[in-house]
Design a protein around this nucleic acid. Sequence first.
RNA 1: GGAGAGGUGGCCGAGUGGUCUAAGGCGCACGCCUGGAAAGCGUGUAUCCGUCAAAAGCGGAUCAAGGGUUCGAAUCCCUUUCUCUCCGCCA
Length: 422
Amino acid sequence: MIDIQRIRDNSQEVIRRYKVRNFEAGELVNRIKELDARRRQYQQELDSTLADSKAIARRIGELFKAGKGEETALWKEKSATLKQQAKKLQDDLDAAAGELHELMTNLPMLPHESVPAGDSEADNEIVREEGNIPVLHENAKSHWDLATELDIIDFAAGTRVTGSGFPVYKGRGAALQRALVGFFLEEALEAGYTEYQPPLLVNADSAYGTGQLPDKDGQMYHVASDDLYLIPTSEVPVTNIFRDRILNEADLPVKCTAYSVCFRREAGSYGKDVRGLNRLHQFDKVEIVQIAHPEKSYEVLEEMVGYVAVLLRKLELPFRVARLCGGDLGFASALTYDMEVFSAGQNRWLEVSSISNFETYQAQRLKLRFRPSEGKNRLAHTLNGSALALPRVMAALLENNQTPDGVKIPRVLQKFTGFETL
RNA sequence: GGAGAGGUGGCCGAGUGGUCUAAGGCGCACGCCUGGAAAGCGUGUAUCCGUCAAAAGCGGAUCAAGGGUUCGAAUCCCUUUCUCUCCGCCA
């Protein structure tokens, strides 16, 4: 949710900025301004009514104490009238505030100045590209063929046990997964992140806090009997650890990392995008989350992109960094960089990380603030990114490192796997 | 799952219808005292909304959450929720 102050201060600027997202906010913003004014009007009237009412109650108390109980009848009557008025004002206030909140929920985050205009993925701005595209031997295969041949992933078994999109990792495939998790966590700890093991099920408040609800309802698996959601990313539980908290300015930035399994319904996906490991209902991911000072959050974002780039370099994977255009930008994000690795067997780029600055979007919902050295408490900025999502990294490793003699394991992973080739 | 007891400020804890405008303590901050420190003494120490250009000030809300009784609720009633203890089940 954006800060309503920005609409009060300069609604025209807000409307203009939303155009980068191809979002016509004019009508919505005007209704919000109107409701905001009405809400404040009701608030004032209610406050003064309640003030009167309290004064009368105090007066009655004094009369009783002075033994003049018979003089209170008139005041009681007056108080009853005020109470009725207050009730109505409270209802009006609640209605206005409720509707206002509802409309505010429909506003995406304001995009950062650097976000390019555009409609789709095709308009994203490639800001960096690194590494060499591997030249594969003649019989090079896709990772799904390779993995099946090497007997390290059993897609068919997963389908039998659960359904499509739930692969079974086996033997050295399972070991490689574990190695990647170990490597990612070790790197994160070295970079100063604190490791968390969060719950994999969250309540609706948490899902709302990070913006999964109501915006992305339907992406998450819902456990109806207990009204809980399977997490689509550990961003949700980790960020919600800080819901309703007021941090000390000196504690910023807070740096968290977590390994977790992630669950996504991915309703409506089909075709080559979902072959093999390209898109799954269940996958493993190491996530990094930072809670940053508003004036430092874009430095933090760049730092996080730099951090993920180091991981990819160490894994010897060719990658590129894209700044998402307005049309591709997530609802809650002000600026997002996607990190994509080139996967030679499929001859395409695969997104392995998405790093975003949500500014105050989540913080507003989470009531996540910090105490500055001077002045009033302020909303913090939240950021997160994958570091990294495993399946596509594994896909690229398999495809790019295949040789007639087997698949080579990158040097940095060998101490975790205990083997050098597959 | 069954039975019982509870939820009060950063923390502990008092408070069973009207100076609760929440006692007292701890912690923290500042000041006095001191050669320096401790102790001691003093002062301050929640969040949100509104008013204001802003701050101060002022008004309102908040004692788990929601509803009710009452002129008046932390206090009484109802619902929900969470925690603890015992029993049951259990990796």
